[in-house]
């Protein structure tokens, strides 16, 4: 127990933070778009899109990882194109781990943002309209700022959940030390190794501390935002 955390544990911690942060970065604009479409747009296929967005919530994460492998794998439909045209490889990389995490946490984020959007008073948007603001102008000056608390809440929740994503990541991005071995993967590896009880315990404690900090930060942020919006 001389060096806690060890460099391998630090690597896992850093990697978890990086993967979660990148996944939030990936999915945030898309989640805002999806939330907007699901709340405001009226089109025939809406329930189908709604179900599709929520699919990762009910699927086994391993299945999600496997589907990603088929699509984004080195020989996958999209993965092959990405590699040939842009030289990007996602499978078995940190970026891939972030993609898998993004897909898994996407429904959480959309739900939070959608709730925020539903709470935005349409009357305020109508007022902005009468004051000369066009659709994009209204979105960026009225709708988006008023949704900000929900967007932040969604981002923080997705980030916190992303720190612990396991099944999809290990299936799509594998368990490569320093590249895709995040905290939960390192924890799993430790449990699988003989005499890994002590490192496993340390990693578990690290996860708990991280989770607590995340939740406290989310609460603090939410309070700040509420004050900013004067509620």
């Amino acid at each position: 127990m001389s060096d806690f955390p060890s460099s391998a544990e630090l690597d896992a911690l850093r990697l978890s933070l990086e993967v979660a942060a990148r996944s939030v970065g990936f999915s945030l604009p898309l989640a805002v778009l999806a939330a907007w479409v699901l709340t405001r747009a009226r089109f025939p296929g809406r329930p189908v899109l709604d179900a599709f967005v929520h699919l990762p919530l009910v699927l086994p994460p391993v299945a999600v990882g496997y589907v990603l492998l088929i699509l984004f794998g080195v020989h996958g439909v999209i993965g092959g194109w990405l590699r040939d045209r842009l030289g990007i490889q996602l499978a078995f990389t940190t970026a891939g781990a972030a993609l898998a995490t993004a897909v898994m946490t996407f429904p959480l984020m959309v739900r939070a943002i959608r709730m925020a959007l539903e709470n935005v008073d349409l009357g305020l948007e109508a007022a902005a309209r009468t004051l000369g603001a066009g659709p994009w102008d209204r979105f960026f000056t009225i709708t988006l700022p008023l949704m900000l608390p929900g967007i932040l809440a969604g981002a923080v929740t997705a980030f916190a959940a992303g720190l612990g994503e396991f099944g999809a990541v290990i299936t799509f991005a594998s368990n490569i030390p320093g590249a895709t071995r995040t905290l939960p993967l390192a924890l799993y590896t430790a449990i699988q190794s003989p005499g890994g009880d002590a490192p496993a315990t340390r990693l578990a404690i690290l996860s708990i501390v991280l989770g607590l900090l995340g939740l406290l930060a989310a609460e603090l942020l939410a309070r700040r935002m509420r004050r900013f919006l004067g509620r």
Binding site: D121, A127, T130, L131, A133, L146, F228, L229, R231
Partner: peptide, 27 residues
């Protein structure tokens, strides 16, 4: 609506909560 140049004062004031009075006036 946005190019009609017709001002509208609603029953409820509908001030933008994330702007100050000045910000609302300037909008």
């Amino acid at each position: 609506v946005e190019t009609r140049r017709i001002g509208y004062v609603f029953q409820d004031p509908r001030l933008f909560p994330h702007f100050s009075v000045l910000g609302n006036l300037r909008y």
